[in-house]
Design a binder for these strands. Structure first.
Lengths: 126, 126
DNA sequence: TAAAGTGTATTAGATAAATAGTACACTAAC
DNA sequence: GTTAGTGTACTATTTATCTAATACACTTTA
C-alpha cells in the first residue's frame, strides 16, 4: 500500500488525511481492527511517534475508537463515516472552485473543463 | 489585500503561489513594476527574508524579471503568462479529480456535484 | 506465571523554516 | 555629492517537526 508522503507538509498531517480517506472509502471497514501503531509506522517508513501523533489527531473526529492495550477499531457508526466523507468532498469542491476562480475562470469555464477532464481516459497517472 | 497565510505549509511556498496567481489572473499586469521586497513583506506581515526567498523561487519560472537595484517587473510575455495559467489550472483539475476519486466518487458523481456547487450562490464565503 | 503485543509517555538530538538585525553595492532623484 | 530606495547576503536565534531510544501499564495468550 503506497503512502506517498512528501516533505512539503507535515508528515503527521499527511498520514492523518490518508487514514481518513481509507476509512471513508472503505479500505478500512466499519468495526475493523486497525494495524498497530508500530506496524503502520513500519509500513509507512515513519517513526512510531509520528504515526501515534496522527492517530491522536484522528481520535477527535470519532472515526476510530481506541481500546487501550488492545488496539484501535474503525467506528461502526456508518452515518458518521458518511458525514465525514461528505464533509471532505465539500471541502474539496469549495477549495477547487475557489482556486479556479482565483485563476480567472468563470463557473461556466470550470464546468466545461471538468467535463473535458472527466472524458479524458489518461488523467489518472499524472 | 489579504494574504491569508496559514502554518500548515511553509510560508514562502504559500507566498510563491499567491504571487503566481496574482500574475496569471492580472492583479499584477504584464510589464508592471512590483512593490519592493520590503513593502510586500510588511504588507504580508512577514520577514523580508521570507519574501525574498519566495521571489528567488519565482524567478525561475520567468514570470518576473529582476532589475537589480531597481526592482522587479512582471514579464511582458503574455504567452508565458497564459501557459503558466493553463498549467496551474491543469494541476488543480488533476489533483481535484484524484482526491474525489480517492474518496470514492465516480466521474459522473463528480460532474454532478460540480454542477450543484456552481449553481449555488453562497459558496464563495466558506 | 511468563511472554508477546497493545497504546502511551518521556527525553534527547537533528533538521528545516521563520524571524531579527545588520550590512553591502548599486541606481535614481535631489 | 548626498540621500533614499532598490536587491541581496550574512549570522544568530527561535520554533516546529521528525527521529531515536526507552520505558511503563495493561491485555491476551501460551
Amino acid at each position: 500500500m503506497a503512502w506517498e508522503l512528501n516533505s512539503d507538509r507535515p508528515i503527521y498531517a499527511q498520514i492523518l488525511e490518508k487514514l481518513q480517506v481509507r476509512i471513508v472509502c472503505g479500505t478500512y471497514k466499519p468495526g475493523e481492527w486497525l494495524p498497530s501503531v508500530r506496524d503502520l509506522a513500519a509500513e509507512a517508513s515513519v517513526n512510531p511517534n509520528t504515526m501515534q501523533r496522527a492517530f491522536t489527531e484522528l481520535e477527535r473526529s470519532g472515526l476510530v475508537i481506541t481500546q487501550r492495550n488492545m488496539g484501535r477499531v474503525v467506528t461502526q457508526d456508518v452515518q458518521l463515516i458518511e458525514a465525514a466523507k461528505h464533509r471532505m468532498a465539500v471541502t474539496q469542491m469549495n477549495s477547487f472552485f475557489e482556486n479556479m476562480r482565483q485563476l480567472g475562470y468563470s463557473d461556466g469555464e470550470i464546468i466545461s473543463l471538468v467535463n473535458q477532464t472527466a472524458n479524458t481516459a489518461d488523467n489518472t497517472n499524472t
